[in-house]
Design a protein around this nucleic acid. Structure first.
Length: 585
RNA sequence: GCGCCCGUAGCUCAACUGGAUAGAGCAUCUGACUACGGAUCAGAAGGCUGGGAGUUCGAAUCUCUCCGGGCGCGCCA
């Protein structure tokens, strides 16, 4: 459980008591009252802004209310001091036993420690990757894949029921281009000389295998047919092949997408028509003419009446077309249908993880989501900025034309799944990220993956040593939960325990903000506190975890070490990284 | 030209959604390490949070306005 939230409940009860005693007016709005760890450790263990938030309502000043509050707070069991500071904060200190008990809580919960009830089982829909099925995933896709997957893990840990989804864009012109490109490779496989790949078609070698497979399956039956005959069949064939490859790559990266939705199937099922009618029924569709885009002057622009969605009524800048001039649906219309589909499947919290090039798409999709669900569903869009691939500080040159673009598979082969997953979360999603092949694999504290893994490995190492040295002792987590934890009184030990106790709170806050990267930063902090303690033991042997002449202290410290290992493992699980038992050389 | 994202230590980035003296890691100096697992640790220095104005008890965070970078900009997806 989240100890800060727990104490906030006690604080609110205490405020009720003050109201009952006539010390505060009834009907207080306590929504903005917070209990948090103070920024400065020297300020105490917890801090509340209650006096500042409530002073105006109580017709007094923060500095007057705070001491009255502090006096009451000092009577709460476990609280050793309540001091007024700054503009009216009340800083609280707790007895060591309060924190030491958290170690036992970790040990009893295991890697489930931090799992929360915040979500209360409510459904959340996370859509990510959704790469066009026109080629293999490349390195840039890895970021969205990891961000989405870790976010899904995080939300699950916080108690939400999560659906992980991939939207297959198999209905547009790009998959037709794929079909034509594959057809060319098919003719090539049948022995034809195809020469240069014409501009506008996909040149990648990966299509050779598609052409080959098609030739093996169907022989020459398509070769002399008109495009209208072979295109649908070859398109479907090629898309299936591409998706098979993509699923394989995702599996290698450990991405747990379970729902794959086909745009084509959605259209075929009439979902777009239904969504269109829904919008029409709400009076949000009209025929109109848009202004030409400012500043940019398309040569072929001419005013033309279109079927438009009134996106401006929901915060977008302009109304958006739903139909192309040939009468078919725009990509946007299809996507509205998909989001409506999510809503109809019971999701009111929708999250899309998209690439940087979709930044301009956010407003209209949020507008559409709000419109078509009557405001019942909200859409949060996480835009993932670019990944700059580097090697030893130099950019890795990438060119699709020259065929040197780096695939996801290349990156995985080079550095492995765990490194990719962790590094992708070492920046906020909306910041560009540098991915340096040399740096992310080096074994030093510069490398956060290594740093955190090393922390876990050190913990496990200590526990292995303990098992050898103390064959008679019960060293299971359950047994260690009963260790004499009051012996954990060192400054560094207490600091470490406070960080451990902050894990449930971090899970909640990160889940609420939809920001999985916070887990990576937290793990780095935790590892840092652990390495600090470890190194203290080098200088001062009385601080070592294993103390031959003090078995009780040893047990208490082993409990702490075990708890650290568990929380690290639990955080790594959210990121999707396997904790290691030892560092391979 | 318009919209969105961003701008924080020399570099790469945090900052618990409005809290206290803005924090880490590199790099730079100064020290510790013949070992529970070497790839670490302790300390120093480094800032007008791009500039300016506003909102209030309080702003890196919200508003406005400039400056600088990225992405996008009718019937591509």
């Amino acid at each position: 459980m989240n100890v800060f939230k727990g104490f906030r409940r006690q604080l609110l009860a205490l405020l009720d008591g003050m109201v009952a005693a006539g010390e505060l007016p009834a009907g207080l709005d306590t929504a903005r009252v917070t209990v948090e760890p103070p920024r400065e450790a020297s300020h105490g263990d917890m801090s509340t802004n209650a006096a500042m938030v409530l002073a105006a309502q109580a017709a007094t000043t923060p500095r007057e209310l705070a001491p009255r509050l502090a006096r009451r707070l000092e009577t709460v069991p476990g609280v050793t001091a309540a001091a007024v500071a700054g503009p009216g904060f009340v800083n609280l200190s707790f007895a060591p036993a309060f924190w030491q008990a958290q170690v036992a809580a970790v040990l009893r919960a295991g890697t489930a420690y931090g799992a929360g009830t915040l979500g209360a089982g409510r459904p959340v829909n996370v859509e990510y990757v959704s790469a066009n099925p026109t080629g293999p995933l490349h390195a840039a896709h890895a970021r969205g894949a990891v961000v989405g997957d870790a976010l899904a893990n995080l939300l699950e840990k916080a108690g939400f029921t999560v659906s992980r989804e991939y939207y297959i864009n198999d209905a547009g012109s790009q998959v037709e281009t794929l079909a034509r490109s594959a057809f060319l490779r098919y003719r090539e496989a049948l022995g034809e000389e195809i020469g240069e790949i014409p501009a506008g078609l996909y040149p990648g070698d990966y299509l050779k295998a598609v052409g080959q497979a098609l030739a093996e399956r169907d022989g020459g039956r398509w070769r002399d047919q008109p495009e209208s005959v072979w295109l649908p069949a070859i398109r479907d064939f090629a898309v299936d092949r591409m998706m098979a490859g993509i699923r394989e790559d995702l599996a290698l990266l450990g991405i747990g997408i379970t729902v794959f939705s086909s745009e084509r199937a959605l259209v075929a099922a009439g979902a777009v028509q239904a969504a269109f009618e829904e919008l029409s029924a709400r009076g949000l569709v009209y025929q109109g003419v848009l202004d030409p885009p400012k500043g940019k002057k398309p040569d072929d622009w001419e005013p033309r009446p279109q079927t438009l969605f009134r996106a401006t009524a929901f915060g977008d800048d302009v109304d958006r077309p739903l139909r192309k001039s040939d009468g078919s649906w725009t990509y946007f219309a299809n996507d509205i249908a998909y989001h409506l589909d999510k809503f109809r499947r019971g999701f009111t919290v929708l999250i899309d993880v998209l690439g940087a090039d979709h930044g301009g798409y956010v407003k209209r999709m949020q507008a559409a989501t709000s419109a078509i669900t009557g405001g019942e569903a909200t859409l949060d869009v996480k835009i993932c900025q670019l990944v700059h691939l580097m090697d030893q500080g130099r950019p890795v040159k990438m060119s699709k034309r020259a065929g040197t673009f780096v695939t996801l598979r290349d990156v995985l082969d080079e550095v492995g799944r765990d490194v990719v997953r962790f590094i992708m979360l070492t920046r906020r999603n909306d910041q560009t990220l540098e991915f340096d092949f040399a740096r992310v694999t080096e074994q030093s504290k510069d490398n956060p993956v290594f740093y955190v893994q090393y922390c876990h490995a050190r913990c496990r190492s200590v526990l292995r040593h303990a098992a050898q040295d103390l064959p008679a002792a019960a060293l299971t987590a359950e047994a260690l939960a009963g260790a004499p934890l009051h012996r954990l009184a060192g400054v560094e030990e207490m600091a470490l325990i406070r960080i451990l106790a902050g894990w449930p709170r971090l899970v909640e806050a990160a889940a609420e903000a939809h920001e999985a990267h916070r887990v990576a930063f937290y793990l780095h902090d935790l590892a840092s506190a652990f390495h600090t303690l470890w190194n203290k033991g080098k200088d001062d042997t009385t601080l070592r975890f294993l103390s031959a002449d003090d078995p009780e202290l040893t047990l208490a410290r082993l409990a702490l070490v075990q708890a650290v290992a568990m929380v690290v493992a639990s955080g790594l699980a959210v990121i999707g990284v396997e904790p290691v038992e030892e560092m391979r050389s």
